[in-house]
Simulated scan of single mutants.
Amino acid sequence: MLNDFFLPLQLQIPLGGLLLSMLSWLLLEVVGRRCRPRSLLRGLLLTSRLSVAATCLLVGLGWWLALQLDPLVVNLERDGHEVRELLVAIGVAWTLVRWRQELQRDREGYAQEILPRLNEKDRLFLYDVIQKLLTISVGAILAYEVMQQLGVSAAVLITAGGFGAAAVGFGAQGVVSNSLSGLSLYVNRPFIVGDFIEIPAHQLMGTVEQISWFYTQLRSPDRQPVYVPNIIFTSTPVVNTAAIDNRRLLIQFSVSYDDRPLITAIVAELEQMLADHPMVDQAKLQAVHFTGYGASSLDLRLLAHACSSEITEAWTLQQDLLLRIGDVVERHGASMPFPTRTLLLPHQLSPAHTS
């Protein structure tokens, strides 16, 4: 009697979907809670609960409703399997989207977990690639399923490809160029997320925050977001200052003309100071030279390289060198000149100047 009641309406399909929805939520909840706290597996399992459970419920309900439709109104050639497959594809895509959101939530922690052997920059680069692949997978799944539902043939795809080529010829060059340039950035890796770059031709600079298919987002030194089309990076030179192995410091300073006999001793002490300085890279060129006779001073130059590539450490070293240069000059009894101007009032001028 129970079968006679259910089978005409095929209620076992929506009830089965409801049961499967509840079981999937419970299973993901239990297994997820047993995973290590803050782990990637725990995050993915728990974030999948809603999409997986809802998909099971909607697939059962949608398939059942499709079977109730009048064939004269909507003709489903495969007894509603088309609806089921479409809903499953949407559910899979939805789950992948939620996974991508979860990966973005704790970017650095998850990257450290799944790619522990790589350095920080390479780890974040590959992590960004994984997120991009998830996005591509979502688009590919939905596009394939839509084409399957529409019964798109190879001939139609070829025709669409012809129209696509014509669209490129009439105005989509920029979109295609930017997307291909974005792909080139991932393959060649002239810079990655976190690098500080400069584009001299366009007077742009900033820290790379995101590399998308069509543009790259920079954060300028004054914290303004800058969106740069990817085609710029393949057509103009880019300076990646993050790839510097050592920061070079070039400090210009001067002494008075009266201090010319002291220059040799000043240079010698500064050279010894560089040789003993713990923050100066001894493997790189370092020098102190007398460079010329200025308009009102004797000009000198100090060259050194910091041990680190970090700009903040280079600034610290530069400050220390400037202070030490002043101490050395003062210790030798020399002085650093500064521009002066003498103003003669009319009553102070000689008769020859007033005539």
Rank of each mutant, 00 (worst) to 15 (best):
P351V: 13
R105W: 07
T340K: 07
L86A: 15
D327V: 03
P225G: 04
S48T: 08
S51G: 10
K284W: 00
T291C: 13
S24D: 13
M336A: 09
L285H: 12
L183S: 07
F196S: 05
L300C: 14
A314E: 00
L76C: 09
S235D: 05
G16H: 02
P351D: 14
R107E: 14
V255R: 03
D222T: 04
E198F: 05
P116M: 05
L26V: 09
L183E: 10
V187W: 15
L76W: 07
S335Q: 07
G333H: 05
Q104A: 15
P71F: 07
V228E: 12
T316V: 01
F214V: 14
S24M: 14
V208E: 02
T95V: 06
N119P: 01
Y257W: 15
H81V: 14
L303K: 02
Q203D: 11
E209V: 05
R123I: 03
L20W: 05
P278T: 01
P261Y: 02
T340C: 05
L44E: 07
R223W: 10
D4K: 12
N240W: 00
T207H: 09
R49W: 07
L185E: 07
S355V: 10
V156Q: 15
S355G: 15
R331P: 01
P351L: 10
V168W: 15
P229G: 13
R247I: 03
L118M: 08
V255W: 01
L150W: 12
R219S: 14
T354C: 10
A306P: 00
T342V: 12
F170A: 09
L124Q: 04
F163E: 08
V238T: 15
D4Y: 06
T342S: 10
I311E: 11
G139T: 02
D327C: 04
T135I: 09
R331N: 14
N188K: 13
I114L: 15
L285K: 08
T316S: 11
S179W: 14
S254M: 03
T340V: 10
Q173D: 09
P351Y: 09
F253C: 03
D259V: 01
S350L: 15
S296T: 11
I199F: 11
Q282T: 01
L46V: 07
M147D: 08
S212Y: 02
V83R: 02
A54H: 04
I325V: 13
L87C: 14
G17R: 02
T236M: 04
R42Q: 15
V226P: 06
D245F: 00
E209A: 10
R36V: 11
A172W: 14
L87P: 02
V92Q: 05
L23C: 10
L26P: 01
F253E: 06
Q224M: 08
C307H: 02
W63V: 04
R117S: 13
L28I: 10
